[in-house]
Design a protein around this nucleic acid. Structure first.
Lengths: 132, 132
DNA sequence: ATATAAAATGATAATAGTTATCAATTTCAA
DNA sequence: TTGAAATTGATAACTATTATCATTTTATAT
């Protein structure tokens, strides 16, 4: 296992993600920090987001047909993804909390985390569809 | 809405997916059919998989850090994804069945489908780790 | 059966997202 | 303070997916 060393860039990237609760993509984080830190490269953003994900400090949210998104909120929660506008929103539903042990029993996997992504149409997009 | 017309290619692609329960990627389906149908192009495979997904005939499974996978099993079920070997396996857990209505109530989304992907380490990879 | 319009295709170019490369810089334990 | 390992920025390379477009196929109306 590789011995981690501190890096200012990693700290800045993690703080930027923690300030943005809209599940930004790597590129969105790059743009967030670029004004104040124009010398941080996109590759460094990707590198650190992946590293932080491997370390379990943040989560990567896979979304069908679009970029991966990242999430620094590690308290248990789940996501709904709007198929129309692409937004991702958090929600919590207590019934899922116990499921980890159940899934491990059913599948014999060691479950690291639960990416429960519900795909649908968000309230705003539902209204727009009606109005047309 | 576009008026669909039959195509032999679409039938072949859908049948290939229905024969492969390992949640293949678009490229894997292309390779499955390529020997017998060398004139079906990769673009046609992508086009039809996306079209079938939009029609709700198959599902696209988004997996972090890898290609989208496809699934023709439309009876309700969920997935576990091995972070080491990348495999995706089905499972069913009845407690999730009622969740759609609950999530709609919580989020006010119109939920189209549930991509419940649990990430972890599969039984085989767990054993390999121990043996090292 | 034929003509026609719409849909679909194959081949390939283009794009987007992400990762790899590598010389230079930074970190940190000895 | 030194040296090895980790990290970086810049950019090339790569992979997955989508767009383009001339051609072919499909299905409908005649």
């Amino acid at each position: 296992m590789k011995q981690l060393k501190n890096s200012k860039q990693r700290t800045i990237i993690l703080e930027a993600l923690r300030l943005n609760c809209n599940h930004p993509t790597a590129d969105e984080i790059y743009k967030m920090i670029h004004n104040e830190h124009p010398n941080i490269s996109l590759a460094t953003v990707y590198r650190n987001l992946n590293l932080l994900t491997e370390l379990g400090i943040i989560k990567k949210i896979p979304i069908a047909s679009s970029s991966d998104r990242f999430d620094a909120t590690m308290t248990e929660h789940y996501h709904v993804h709007c198929r129309k506008c692409g937004s991702v929103q958090d929600f919590f539903y207590e019934d899922f909390s116990a499921s980890k042990a159940a899934i491990e029993a059913i599948t014999d996997y060691e479950v690291i985390h639960q990416d429960l992504v519900f795909t649908g149409i968000c309230p705003q997009c539902k209204n727009e569809t009606k109005e047309q």
